[in-house]
Nucleic acid binder design. Structure first.
Length: 724
DNA sequence: ACGGGTTACACT
DNA sequence: TAGTGTAAC
């Protein structure tokens, strides 16, 4: 599973910063009277006092451990303060911890590339800062070294009895005869100490840190002296450190792989690994993992610190253990709705604060089938394009669930009466949103608008393009940018879909289902804050070439969209005028905001600015996206065409027959373009000269470029509601 | 019948 | 690709 990466020859200065019992600290900041007391954060207090998810160092002295129940903790430490995780919508609400984590990240990212590794951990690449310091103000000239830095633990520094530890540290930092690598680490010590003090001052949180030449060693070190201390790993100490280190202390070896190493290979310490030739390890664990193992035995790890301050996905989930398993569809739907509400809320915050949008919705569930031979079958996870809006997410998630359930129960699902025993139970549910990209903008709202309904073939050169343009083309259908946010689409097909494809439910359940649907679908209509657009204004000067290239791309998309449409949906609309107007009308089963024209003008002006998002210094999103190193293979957003990822073939054919002809056609139209298309669309993507291609008039190009759109008489704006 | 809820990533 | 599995906190 782990993969080897070559280590760059240059010496890096890498830090791993780990918050000390973070959730406890967050609660202590909220309730300062807790400070100094043995405290633990618990989740769900009902059963045996809830599960501990964080334990203060005071409480640890009493032997309180994570993975104890609250009641157990009380036994070993009667005076322990148990603080509950906030609950919202019947589930744990971690948002407070998430935002506290963001506070920390924003501080730690000040001195170099910063990677958010989890809610309470980051990696920092401080190489540049250290090199600069070394060149301009090397530690060996320093008179005074900060107290915090002097408290560092330097592995391999032997503190003889009676010697002043801090004095030894000072000497180590000041050594003028140290090699370059150690001098860099000495700079790292000072920088990290300062960062940690800033964190403490600005957030009241303490943290621990490891400083080394790579991530693996930094991570190892950060846990060696907690809380509120930092540990350095000079390269001369690496062998001694690893030699006796139990194998499962290493990141990635705490699970099955580590066990296998011990039981199958007799490897108990990292040092034991040294005797195995690389080939042997590859033989046993595969080429990648084998090399990775060989490297880590030697303290070699080339993983880069990714510049990523924000999470790559959002998820919301809950377990329903044992007797609490969900046994009816309405019960599942109720909880799905709760989870989706939370997810939607978080997506909206992300959009608002970070100007990003997610593109894929995934549903995970765990289930048991009581009376069945293959009861260890897993509930399949399912995903589909993500449409913004709480109601839509709920709807889509529920559809995904039903698709999964049908597959899980295998079509012979027992018909059940009302709340009667159904033979299955859901023990965990979660929804997540992934493939998050910076919001598109400007001209992009057109491109985005055409997305998801057919198969655009872009005219290549994608990889040359600005990441934001790339992002644009991945947008969900029915979505356009702007502060009024996205139009709420109530496509009739979605609703018929739900009701008509759940044959196994009895009447009562169907009623429950639809009533609960209408209950939850009123959704909210609060606007996205206008700040959405701020921050991009003010940098209008931008590379014209980029813009032109981009337009070409949209144009190409346009052509092929039209082509597909023409071929497969002829009957929809009578005339086939190849005008942009007609295209808009016929293409769109969804209401399109009447503000389109306005929006286009607005965004046309802003296009240059928005295209710069990827590079704007003050914009985190730009930094975020840098790691999208030209992965042009997934850029064309192919995942977006098909509305549902589950296999339509799996629908009971008799059900298909019962569907209204219209809907059958819809379904076929969804599925088939996908099936016909050859697997590698790179071949087709660049081909814009097909005989069937329509030629865009210059007027059309203007529309795309500048938003000179004639008034379109499309769906009335009253049809739309916005979310966020 | 779970420490619980999230994240990330490699594999196929 | 979507879906699965592992690992971590």
């Amino acid at each position: 599973m782990p993969v080897a990466k070559p280590e760059s020859s240059d010496s890096r200065v890498i830090a791993h910063v780990d918050m000390d019992c973070f959730y406890v600290q967050v609660e202590e900041r909220k309730q300062p009277q807790l400070r100094g007391l043995p405290t633990a954060v618990v989740q769900y207090n009902e059963w045996k006092g809830g599960a501990l998810i964080a334990v203060s160092y005071e409480a640890r002295k009493f032997g309180v451990k994570r993975s104890m129940r609250g009641a157990e903790a009380k036994e070993v430490c009667p005076q322990i303060q148990l603080v509950q995780v906030p609950v919202a919508r019947g589930k744990a609400d971690l948002n407070g911890y998430r935002s506290a984590g963001s506070e920390v990240v924003s501080i730690l990212s000040r001195r170099g590339r910063c990677e958010r590794a989890s809610i309470d951990e980051v990696y920092l690449d401080l190489t540049d800062a250290a090199e600069t310091m070394l060149a301009e103000n090397p530690p060996q000239n320093l008179e005074k070294i900060d107290e915090e830095a002097l408290k560092s633990h330097i592995l391999g520094l032997n503190n003889e009895d009676g010697s002043d530890v801090k004095e030894n540290v000072r000497e180590w930092i000041n050594r003028h005869n140290a090699d370059h690598r150690d001098k860099l680490l000495a700079c790292g010590i000072l920088i990290v100490a300062e960062l940690r003090m800033q964190v403490l001052k600005e957030t009241e949180f303490t943290c621990s840190a490891g400083i080394a030449h790579n991530k693996m060693l930094a991570k190892l070190a950060s846990g060696m002296n907690k809380p509120a201390q930092q540990t350095v790993v000079p390269s001369s100490s690496v062998n001694g450190l690893l030699n006796t280190l139990p194998i499962r202390k290493m990141k990635q070896l705490g699970g099955k792989l580590g066990i296998s190493l011990q039981t199958d290979m007799g490897v108990n310490t990292v040092g034991d690994l040294l005797q195995f030739p690389e080939e042997k390890l590859q033989e046993r664990y595969g080429i990648n993992t084998g090399t990775w193992l060989w490297n880590i035995a030697r303290g070699i790890s080339g993983e880069a610190v990714e510049g990523r301050l924000l999470p790559k996905s959002h998820g919301s989930g809950k377990t329903f253990p044992g007797p609490r398993a969900l046994k009816t569809v309405p019960a599942v739907q109720h909880w799905l709705n709760q989870l989706c509400e939370e997810l939607s809320e978080r997506l909206c915050s992300d959009l608002d604060q970070n100007k990003r949008m997610a593109n894929t919705l995934t549903l995970h569930a765990r289930a048991y089938k009581s009376s069945d031979s293959d009861s260890q079958k897993k509930f399949p996870s399912k995903s589909c394009p993500l449409r913004y809006g709480t109601g839509k997410i709920q709807e889509d998630a529920f559809n995904l669930f039903q698709a999964g359930l049908r597959e899980y129960i295998g079509f012979y699902g027992v018909k059940t009466q009302g709340s009667q025993y159904s033979g299955w139970g859901i023990t965990s549910l979660s929804v997540s949103a992934s493939k998050i990209v910076p919001i598109p903008s400007g001209t992009c709202s057109i491109a985005k608008y055409f997305h998801g309904q057919s198969t655009p073939h872009f005219s290549s050169m994608q990889s040359l393009d600005n990441v934001n343009a790339e992002a644009t083309l991945l947008l969900p259908p029915g979505v356009h940018s702007g502060s009024e946010c996205y139009s709420e689409l109530n496509s009739p097909k979605a609703e018929s879909w739900i009701e008509d494809t759940v044959p196994d439910l009895d009447l009562q359940e169907q009623k429950d289902l639809s009533s609960s649907l209408s209950k939850t679908q009123d959704g909210f209509t609060q606007d996205i804050s206008p700040s959405l657009l701020s921050g991009t204004e003010g940098c209008l000067e931008q590379n014209q070439n980029k813009q032109e290239r981009y337009i070409t791309k949209v144009e190409g998309q346009f052509k092929s969209e039209y082509k597909e449409r023409k071929g497969k949906r002829v009957k929809d609309k009578g005339t086939e005028t190849p005008s942009i107007l007609e295209l808009f009308k016929s293409y769109n089963p969804y209401p399109f905001g009447s503000s389109l024209s306005q929006e286009l003008k607005k965004t046309a002006q802003g296009t240059g600015a928005r295209l710069t998002i990827g590079h704007a210094e003050e914009n985190e999103v730009g930094k975020e996206e840098k790691p999208m190193h030209g992965s042009s293979s997934r850029d064309e957003g192919d995942g977006r065409r098909e509305v549902w990822s589950y296999n339509i073939d799996e629908i009971d054919p008799t059900v298909m027959d019962e569907l209204p002809q219209e809907i059958q056609d819809e379904i076929k139209a969804w599925v088939q373009p996908h099936k016909w298309r050859p697997n590698n669309n790179t071949a087709r993507r660049g081909c814009s000269n097909d005989a069937n291609d329509i030629i865009l008039t210059s007027e059309t190009r203007n529309v795309l470029a500048f938003g000179n759109l004639p008034d379109l008489d499309l769906a009335p704006s009253s049809d739309q509601a916005s979310f966020c």
